[in-house]
Computed example of a mutant assay.
Amino acid sequence: MRVLVIEDDDDLRVAITASLRAAGFAVDAVADLPPADEALAVNSYDCTVFDRMLPSGDALHYVRARRPAVPVLFLTARDSVADRIAGLEHGDDYLVKPFAVAELVARVRSLCRRVATGRPPVLRCGDLEIDSARHEVRRAGVLITLTAKEFVVLEQLVAQQGRPATRAELIEVAWDRMADPASNVLDVLITQLRRKLGKPPMVHTERGVGYRIEPA
């Protein structure tokens, strides 16, 4: 999957690029809107990551006017409710600085996967609802706080409800390709996820395969 990063802070641009590449993405990185415009015109991307305030102006206005045909994730230090709403109205996700790079990688992976699978922005399973754009999970209307990896694994389980997700599939979506499928990191995460989702349980073990989710 190929990602375009537009960030004028040199150190942050390098850090984001390195982290995404380590997670298995092909990454092009530029520092302002004109080279981003050129890159979008000649290349195909699965996701774009825009710093909002760039030397050429607010990237929100650029996206509003030209709306790339791929998901847009905004990065910004502007964290007012109005700014968040504007970012979600004109982009697909919004992450406030400072942020954990691991969370950024998880959100980019989620956006890329949605394009590849035609996945709807809101997924449901019984009384469970996952809003991918807002990165929110609710059960029976109650907001549940998940880590980035918990969110990605739950999203994958709900997206393919009706059939079990293999361990390899879940590890691939939440960890980089260097992760060891034989390790217990997934089992630990599933245990935490079950605890946070509460009762009655929704996530079930498929012995010898992986896990599946069903409406409670």
Rank of each mutant, 00 (worst) to 15 (best):
A82E: 14
A65M: 12
G87W: 01
D51T: 01
L88F: 03
V63C: 15
E89L: 07
R78A: 15
H90Q: 14
G87D: 02
G87P: 06
L95D: 10
Y94K: 10
A59Q: 04
R64L: 11
S56N: 10
P68H: 04
R52K: 13
H90M: 07
L75T: 04
A65E: 15
L60W: 00
S56G: 11
L54S: 14
P55V: 06
D92N: 14
L60M: 13
A86Y: 05
A59T: 06
L88D: 05
P55D: 14
L95V: 12
R84C: 07
A82H: 11
L54A: 14
R64I: 03
A65L: 12
L60C: 10
I85M: 12
P68N: 10
G87C: 05
R66P: 10
A82F: 08
D83F: 06
H90C: 02
R67D: 04
S56D: 13
G57P: 13
V63D: 09
R78W: 15
L95H: 09
G57T: 05
R67I: 00
L95F: 10
Y94E: 13
A82R: 10
S80Y: 00
L95Y: 10
V70G: 05
L88C: 06
G87K: 02
F50T: 05
I85E: 11
V63G: 13
P55M: 12
V63R: 12
G91E: 03
D93I: 01
S80E: 06
R66G: 05
A82G: 03
V81T: 06
Y62H: 15
R64P: 04
P55Q: 11
S80G: 12
F74D: 07
A82I: 02
G87F: 04
Y94C: 10
A77K: 13
F50H: 14
T76S: 15
E89V: 00
L75V: 03
H61C: 03
A82S: 11
V81A: 11
R52E: 14
E89Q: 13
A86W: 01
R84E: 03
D51V: 05
R84Y: 01
R64S: 14
D92R: 02
V72C: 11
V63T: 07
D83N: 04
D58Q: 08
L73E: 08
R52H: 11
R64W: 09
P71A: 08
V70S: 06
